[in-house]
Deep mutational scan, measured.
Amino acid sequence: NMTTNERRVIVPADPTLWTQEHVRQWLEWAIKEYSLMEIDTSFFQNMDGKELCKMNKEDFLRATTLYNTEVLLSHLSYLRES
């Protein structure tokens, strides 16, 4: 059983600085953390943090459901504000 610390993704605090690998790690973490289903992860495959942060609700909806979109966008905006 993993502790919270072991599951925590170590990525730069500012999502606009993320590499493609960071985006992948964040997505994998969010899927596990929030038990998200039905995400087309290939949609995010060649995307870095700058591109991710430019995405709006409609962009996310092409890859996943409305619920997942709201979870991911709210977590992303939380990270950008902190």
Rank of each mutant, 00 (worst) to 15 (best):
I31P: 00
V9W: 12
E33N: 04
L76K: 01
K57W: 08
H75R: 09
R62N: 11
M47C: 13
V9N: 15
K50C: 05
L17Q: 13
E28Q: 12
K54E: 14
N68A: 06
D40W: 01
V23P: 11
K50I: 09
T4Q: 09
T3N: 10
P12Q: 07
V71N: 04
P12I: 06
Y34L: 06
D14H: 01
K50T: 15
W26I: 01
D48H: 04
T16E: 07
M55N: 01
E6L: 12
L36I: 14
T16Y: 07
L72I: 14
Y34W: 13
P12E: 15
T64W: 03
K32S: 12
E21D: 09
M37G: 12
E6N: 11
Y34M: 07
R7L: 15
R8I: 03
P12N: 11
E51V: 08
D59W: 09
N56T: 14
P12D: 14
R8E: 13
Q25P: 00
H22D: 15
D14T: 04
A63F: 08
L36S: 02
Q45W: 14
K32F: 04
L27D: 03
S42C: 06
F44R: 00
I10G: 15
R62T: 08
E21C: 04
C53K: 02
A63R: 11
S35V: 03
L17N: 05
L52V: 06
T16R: 08
N46R: 14
A13F: 10
W18M: 02
W26E: 00
P12K: 07
C53Y: 04
L27Q: 00
D59C: 11
G49I: 03
V23A: 02
C53A: 06
F44Q: 00
L52R: 00
E38S: 10
R24N: 09
R8L: 04
E33R: 10
E70L: 03
W18E: 03
A63H: 07
P15L: 08
F60W: 08
V9M: 07
K54A: 09
E21L: 09
S35E: 09
T19M: 04
A13D: 15
E38G: 08
S42Q: 13
A30H: 07
I10L: 07
A63K: 09
D40Q: 05
N5T: 14
L52E: 00
L27I: 08
T4F: 11
E51G: 10
F60G: 00
W26L: 02
T41I: 02
N68R: 02
A30I: 10
M37W: 08
Y67L: 08
Q45R: 14
E51N: 08
D59R: 04
T41P: 12
T19F: 01
Y34R: 06
K54C: 07
N46Y: 09
R8T: 06
M37V: 14
K50Q: 13
L66R: 10
E28K: 14
I39W: 02
L61W: 11
Q45P: 04
K57H: 03
Q25T: 11
A30K: 07
Q25G: 11
E38T: 08
F43Y: 12
V9D: 10
T65Y: 00
V9S: 15
V71S: 07
L36D: 03
D14P: 03
K32D: 12
K32H: 04
W29H: 11
P15M: 05
T65P: 09
E28H: 05
T65S: 12
M47W: 03
F44S: 03
L17G: 14
I31H: 11
F44L: 06
M2H: 15
M47Q: 03
Q20A: 08
L36Q: 02
E6V: 09
I31E: 11
F60Q: 00
W29Q: 14
R62K: 14
E70H: 12
I39R: 00
K50S: 11
S74A: 13
V9G: 15
D40Y: 02
M55S: 03
A63C: 10
V23C: 01
F43V: 08
L61A: 08
E70V: 04
T3H: 04
L27W: 01
M37Y: 14
N5C: 13
E38L: 11
N5W: 07
F44K: 00
W26T: 00
G49Y: 03
N56G: 14
V71C: 14
I39S: 01
N56P: 07
T4S: 14
E58M: 07
I10C: 05
T4E: 08
E51H: 14
L36A: 01
H75Y: 06
D48C: 04
L17T: 12
T4L: 11
G49R: 01
S35T: 12
P12Y: 06
E51A: 12
L52S: 00
L27A: 06
F44D: 00
T41G: 08
L73N: 02
M2A: 03
Q45L: 12
V11R: 15
V71D: 00
L76I: 04
A30Q: 15
S82P: 08
L61F: 05
N46G: 09
E6P: 08
V9K: 15
K50A: 12
E70C: 03
R8Y: 04
S42G: 10
V23H: 08
D59L: 05
L36T: 03
E21T: 08
T69V: 09
L76F: 02
L76H: 01
T41C: 13
P15Y: 03
F60T: 00
R62I: 02
T65R: 04
S42W: 05
T41F: 15
K50V: 07
L17V: 13
T19I: 03
N46V: 04
R62C: 06
W26C: 02
V23K: 01
V9I: 08
I10Q: 13
N1I: 15
E21A: 13
R24P: 01
V71T: 08
T41D: 14
L17E: 14
L27Y: 01
K32G: 06
E33V: 03
K32L: 07
I39L: 12
P12L: 04
M37P: 10
Q25Y: 08
Y34S: 09
N56F: 03
N5Q: 06
L66M: 12
E33D: 08
H22I: 06
R24Y: 05
N5S: 07
W29I: 11
I31K: 10
N68D: 15
R7I: 05
T19Q: 08
A30C: 10
E28T: 12
C53N: 06
S35R: 07
T16W: 11
T4P: 11
S74F: 04
M2T: 06
N68M: 00
A13N: 15
T41Q: 10
R7P: 11
E58W: 07
D14F: 03
D40A: 03
K54D: 14
L66V: 13
R24Q: 13
I10E: 15
L61K: 04
R8D: 13
M2W: 10
Q25M: 07
L66E: 13
G49W: 01
D48A: 08
F60Y: 15
K50E: 14
M37C: 05
F60P: 00
Y34V: 00
S35N: 13
M47F: 05
G49Q: 00
Y67K: 11
G49L: 02
S35L: 04
W26A: 00
N46T: 14
E58N: 14
T64D: 02
T41W: 10
F43C: 04
R8S: 06
T19W: 01
L66I: 14
S35W: 03
R62Q: 14
N56V: 10
N46F: 13
Y67E: 15
R62W: 04
L36N: 02
I39M: 13
T64M: 12
T69G: 07
D48E: 06
Y67S: 14
I31A: 11
C53M: 08
P15F: 01
I10M: 12
K50D: 09
E33F: 01
L76Q: 01
T3D: 03
M47I: 14
L73V: 09
T16L: 09
E33S: 06
G49S: 00
D48Q: 06
